Amino acid sequence: MSLRRQSLRFSELKRGIDGISQRMLTLTLRNLERDGLVTRTVTPSIPPRVDYELTAMGHSLAEPVEALGTWAFRHIDRIAGAQARYDAGEP
């Protein structure tokens, strides 16, 4: 969702995602690039500039992902309750 409006550098993406490690963000971006959802552009400079942006297919996925996020926030209390019951060994 961070890339929905504009391309961003790696550091900008990392700052915008609470609690993600550099390694996990790198792996996630590589997988999104592999899947054709994100493009990676390297601009030769010192240090090299690397920008990420959504492809057309990535943009087409943004609306369903946003809907899923909205649903999750709406049900966060029920999800937390289900997790607590599961962790306590309740059916």
Score class of each variant (00 low, 15 high):
Thr55Asn: 06
Ile46Arg: 15
Thr43Met: 14
Val50Trp: 11
Leu13Ser: 10
Thr41Asp: 10
Thr55Gln: 03
Leu68Gln: 08
Leu68Ile: 09
Ser60Phe: 01
Phe73Trp: 06
Ala84Pro: 01
Ala62Thr: 13
Phe10Pro: 15
Glu53Trp: 01
Thr41Asn: 06
Ala67Gly: 07
Glu63Asp: 14
Thr26Glu: 10
Leu54Ala: 01
Gln83His: 03
Asn31Thr: 08
Thr41Val: 13
Ala82Asp: 02
Ala62Tyr: 01
Pro91Ala: 04
Ile46Ser: 15
Met57Gln: 11
Leu29Lys: 07
Pro64Phe: 03
Ser2Trp: 00
Ser2Pro: 07
Val38Thr: 01
Arg4Ser: 13
Leu32Ala: 06
Ala84Lys: 13
Arg23Leu: 09
Lys14Cys: 06
Pro64Thr: 05
Leu54Val: 02
Gly19Leu: 02
Pro48Asn: 06
Ile76Val: 07
Asp35Pro: 00
Gln83Ser: 03
Ala80Asn: 04
Leu27Tyr: 09
Gly58Arg: 00
Thr41Gln: 13
Ala62Arg: 03
Ile76Leu: 11
Pro48Leu: 03
Pro47Tyr: 04
Thr26Leu: 08
Glu33Thr: 14
Asp51Glu: 13
Leu13Phe: 02
Val38His: 00
Pro64Gly: 04
Thr39Asn: 11
Ala72Leu: 12
Gln22Pro: 05
Glu90Tyr: 01
Ala62Val: 12
Gln83Tyr: 02
Ile79Trp: 00
Val42Thr: 15
Leu37Gln: 04
Glu53Met: 11
Pro47Met: 08
Phe73Tyr: 06
Ile79Thr: 02
Arg15Lys: 12
Arg34Tyr: 10
Ala84Arg: 14
Asp87Lys: 12
Val42Phe: 11
Leu25Cys: 09
Asn31Tyr: 06
Thr70His: 06
Arg5Thr: 13
Leu29Tyr: 00
Gly69Cys: 06
Asp51Arg: 12
Phe10Leu: 15
His59Phe: 03
Leu25Lys: 06
Arg9Val: 15
Arg5Pro: 06
Gly81Asn: 09
Met57Trp: 00
Ile79Gly: 00
Gly81Trp: 07
Gly16Lys: 13
Arg5Lys: 13
Leu8Gly: 12
Phe73Asn: 10
Ala84Tyr: 01
Ala56Val: 08
Asp51Met: 13
Arg5Asn: 12
Arg40Gln: 13
Glu90Gln: 11
Arg40Thr: 12
Phe10Cys: 15
Gln6Met: 12
Glu90Val: 03
Thr43Tyr: 14
Leu32Phe: 02
Asn31Pro: 01
Ala72Met: 09
Arg78Met: 07
Leu25Phe: 07
Glu12Gly: 12
Leu3Cys: 03
Leu3Tyr: 00
Asp77Gln: 05
His75Glu: 07
Leu8Lys: 14
Asp35Gln: 11
Met57Thr: 09
Ile76Arg: 14
Arg4Tyr: 02
Pro91Asn: 05
Pro48His: 04
Thr55Lys: 05
Arg9Lys: 15
Arg9Gln: 15
Leu13Arg: 02
Glu63Tyr: 11
Arg9Ile: 15
Ser11Ala: 15
Gln83Ile: 10
Leu61Pro: 00
Val38Pro: 01
Leu8Thr: 09
Phe73Val: 08
Leu61Lys: 05
Arg30Pro: 02
Asn31Asp: 10
Arg5Gln: 11
Glu90Lys: 12
Arg5Cys: 08
Ala72Ile: 10
Arg30Cys: 05
Leu32Thr: 03
Ile76Asn: 07
Ala82Arg: 09
Asn31Glu: 11
Thr55Ser: 04
